[in-house]
């Protein structure tokens, strides 16, 4: 009996050796679009998000970043608004040793079940966009889940609903990129880009986000 048990354990251990990782390929990939130029930086989206998720001071699932520069008279200012980008191939997901992070096949939302988190913070380190937020009180990591409950109910996330300028929206990222998705965040004649200045290389994870970039914030042609 003991020998049999030992053999089973050896088989199980061998089966767990050198496992690979295969990214999830979703049926549809949802993503955000943000107009860097028309955003007034009111941070209503940040507050709506904190309110919805009951976040304490500190962690912010969404951030509005102020970018200013130039010399008089040629000065500029614009905002970059970013949360979790629900990447096509997220870096956070393969780092998680407990399976707390997962990606939905239905819509590509990258969610985290913080009740499974052991606080190793690898996801926080690996994410190129600073999305996972560490909560020092619970010693766990939390992050934007694109208000998955609202999405399932047929509505949009709180940050989008809280945007008074309508410069933030969510939708199928491929349609946002090719311009076929009707959204007030992209004005007539405007086109969206994958990356803005100082943002990490989108080739790392293929983030599901698009921006209407300010002329001073463009990195693509």
């Amino acid at each position: 009996m003991e020998e049999e048990k030992k053999a089973r354990v050896q088989v199980a251990v061998a089966a767990r050796k050198r496992e690979g990782y295969t990214p999830v390929v979703p049926d549809t990939q949802l993503g955000f679009v943000h107009n860097n130029v028309d955003c007034i930086g009111c941070r209503a989206c940040e507050i709506a998000c904190k309110d919805k998720n009951g976040l304490p001071p500190g962690p912010r699932f969404r951030r509005v970043m102020y970018v200013e520069g130039g010399r008089y008279p040629e000065v500029f200012a614009y905002k970059v608004n970013m949360s979790c980008n629900h990447c096509a191939e997220p870096a956070c997901l393969p780092t998680c040793p407990t399976g707390a992070i997962f990606k939905r096949t239905k819509d590509g939302i990258v969610d985290i079940d913080s009740s499974l988190c052991i606080g190793c913070r690898r996801c926080e380190a690996a994410c190129p966009f600073g999305a996972p937020q560490f909560d020092p009180i619970s010693n766990t990591v939390m992050k934007c889940n694109l208000c998955v409950d609202e999405i399932d109910a047929g509505r949009k996330p709180y940050c989008v609903m809280g945007c008074m300028m309508r410069v933030l929206d969510v939708g199928p990222i491929d349609k946002i990129r090719d311009g076929s998705y009707a959204t007030k965040a992209v004005g007539p004649g405007e086109r969206v880009v994958r990356q803005v200045r100082n943002m990490a290389d989108p080739e790392l994870t293929n983030p599901s986000v698009a921006f209407v970039a300010h002329p001073k914030g463009r990195v693509e042609g």
Partner: peptide, 22 residues
């Protein structure tokens, strides 16, 4: 700083990520 167990009770000692099988 890692928790001994997650809030739901998953023990750190019982978990193994894919890359940790090397």
């Amino acid at each position: 700083s890692v928790r001994a167990a997650s809030p739901a009770g998953v023990k750190s000692a019982d978990t193994l990520a894919w890359y940790q099988t090397l």
